[in-house]
């Protein structure tokens, strides 16, 4: 049971981990800042990272549908396998929905998304203040959901590695494989 994720899957996973955490952190910071040029700047960075996540998750999903992940170790109880399975798919869903809701929210508020300050993405909704406010809440709730699931996902990986002392985490970090 030493099968681990391939290099492409690991690349997707860790790139996505970095980007999602960055977007969440920027999102937290920017909403706390007073209105200032610095805040406007961080808003843009947040949106750029979000759009990158949205693009990457689509490519990642295509890859995932064409490649089976390595099986979980035989010792993992069936219910845990099911929870892990559901969590992974909800994570995929949120990695898609969180940036999408952000884009929709931005459109509704009358601020188009200009990726990297160069490419203006089409507005998917017309300007609508009430809808913008609603989407702001949707975006925040979904983002908090994503943060919670990421937390659970990390906690589960650590639990497998340090408590169960199995090979679950090593599937994504081959360096951690136990000898023998």
């Amino acid at each position: 049971m030493n099968e681990h994720y391939g290099a492409v899957a690991r690349g997707f996973h860790w790139a996505m981990a970095l980007l999602v955490l960055l977007a969440l952190a920027l999102g937290e910071v920017m909403t706390e800042l007073p209105v200032s040029p610095q805040r406007l700047e961080i808003y843009s960075y947040h949106k750029w990272v979000g759009v990158t996540v949205l693009g990457l998750v689509l490519v990642r999903l295509l890859w995932r549908l064409a490649h089976r992940p390595p099986a979980l170790p035989a010792g993992v109880p069936l219910w845990e396998q099911r929870v892990a399975h559901v969590t992974h798919w909800v994570l995929y869903l949120l990695m898609f929905l969180v940036p999408l809701s952000g884009w929709l929210m931005s459109s509704a508020k009358g601020f188009p998304v200009v990726y990297l300050g160069i490419w203006q993405l089409p507005d998917m909704l017309g300007k609508d203040k009430a809808l913008g406010h609603l989407l702001e809440n949707v975006h925040a709730v979904l983002a908090n959901g994503l943060l919670t699931l990421v937390g659970l996902h990390v906690a589960a990986a650590l639990k497998h590695h340090f408590i169960d002392r199995d090979e679950v985490l090593a599937r994504m970090v081959p360096h951690l494989r136990r000898k023998g």
Partner: peptide, 8 residues
């Protein structure tokens, strides 16, 4: 325009 984002 803020960060090249046009807004009305």
């Amino acid at each position: 325009r803020q960060m090249n984002v046009p807004a009305e």
